[in-house]
Simulated assay, not measured.
Amino acid sequence: MEMHDLCAIAGREPRCVLATAVKVEGHAYRKQGVSMLLTEEGAMYGSISPGCLESDLLARVDRVLHTQQLEFVEYDMRPEDDLSWGETIGCGGLIIVLLEPVCVELRSIMSHMHAYFQCGSAVVLTRSFNDQYTEIHYVIQLAEEADAVASNSGENDLQRHELTEAERWDLPLQISARYEPKPRLIIIGAGNDVIPVARLGISVGFRVVVADWRETLCTAERFPGVELVRGFPSEIMPVLNIQSVDYIVLMSHQFPREREFLELLEDRNYAYLGIMGSRTRTARLLNDLPPLKNLHSPIGLTIGADGPEEIAISIAAELIACKSAAVAAERRNLQRGIAHATDGHLASGR
């Protein structure tokens, strides 16, 4: 679960704690920078481990909410003879977890982050601690603004201080993390074969949008958890406001409407365009159109798929492959001491 999701959940959970792995050494299930939410009622969203740390973190929630004070927790699983973590630990490293009560300042910050994510913008969240690590201050910036500042300064914005209780962890007084919005998967068409594609799209980390002019098909009952846009191509295009990070799939099986959509897509930038149908149909669909960027047709990886569910899996697999390639390319462009976290954001290293 990504920060995009956690910010949305924090907006509806009145009493919750944000847990973040602020330091990871050695082998671990998740990487530095990943977060999860734990609620007073015992609900957990996201994960930091394969399940071995979460119950201990959950036991600390009441105290953190009662004191309204941040807390650091150390989990040192490096000793090979330490069997206290059980058989399901799945890791053998050192993890330092920061627990933060989601109260006035952090709640406001997460609300603003969610608004940026919904607009497709990446953000950088900076946590600044006092020298006793008892207080914290938050600042968010649009990622491009933070990148410009980092480029001009020529160094990472990490301040260190002689630590007291946390000295052995060597944590900086300021930690910055870059968080990416969930990429949008825009599916044109709301037929029955779209349902498993939308469901899998959500499960593999996309913000799914289904667009169709047939109102009886484009419903919340058929597509729970999906954003719906109703209208013909000329009507939905201004609403969709397609961006360079969007993934687009044509599955309406309506030749004239898909041709109309592709004509409107001609001058847009996007990350992926998949078209359902045979090579012959796609060739007719693209006839006389300028070459379209990032085109995948026939859509999906070749896995011998048969039927809507298996075809949806092949499409989801191709989307994952393309998304992973895009993340790897961005990671190469953002090295400057930044390590990639596995939940879709970039977290500053030491």
Rank of each mutant, 00 (worst) to 15 (best):
L289V: 13
G154D: 10
Q32E: 12
V239D: 12
E74F: 00
S324E: 03
M77Y: 02
T20V: 15
P224S: 06
M1G: 03
A10D: 06
S153E: 13
E40H: 14
C218W: 10
S84H: 10
S151E: 11
R127V: 02
Q254R: 06
G304H: 02
F72R: 01
E318Y: 04
V61M: 02
M276C: 11
M3T: 08
H66R: 14
T280S: 08
P238I: 09
T219M: 13
A43H: 01
P50I: 11
I89N: 06
E13H: 07
G154C: 14
E144P: 02
E266N: 08
I248P: 01
G154W: 14
E13C: 15
V64R: 00
Y116K: 05
R160C: 14
A325P: 00
N294Q: 07
G337N: 13
R160I: 09
T126K: 07
R199S: 03
I195A: 13
K182I: 04
A122L: 03
I248N: 02
V124S: 01
S324Q: 12
E318D: 14
S176I: 12
D76Q: 09
G154N: 08
D147T: 07
R279G: 04
H161C: 15
I96F: 00
G344R: 00
R279D: 11
L6I: 01
C103H: 13
M77D: 02
A271T: 07
L265Q: 06
E215G: 13
P196L: 08
I313C: 05
H114I: 08
Q174V: 14
H340K: 12
A312Q: 10
I96A: 03
S121G: 00
C103V: 07
E180W: 07
I338M: 07
P183C: 11
E25H: 15
K293L: 09
I195D: 06
P298M: 04
H66G: 02
L99C: 14
E227W: 06
S314Q: 05
A122C: 07
R336L: 04
D81E: 04
G337K: 09
A150N: 00
L285K: 05
F117A: 00
S297V: 11
I299H: 02
E260W: 04
E221H: 12
T164H: 10
G42I: 01
E40Q: 14
A8P: 00
L285H: 08
A317M: 03
F117K: 00
M44S: 03
C119M: 07
V210Y: 08
G120M: 00
Q254I: 04
C16P: 07
L70W: 05
R184D: 02
N192W: 05
L106N: 01
V104G: 01
D246I: 05
R184L: 07
V239H: 09
L334N: 10
Q32T: 10
M276S: 04
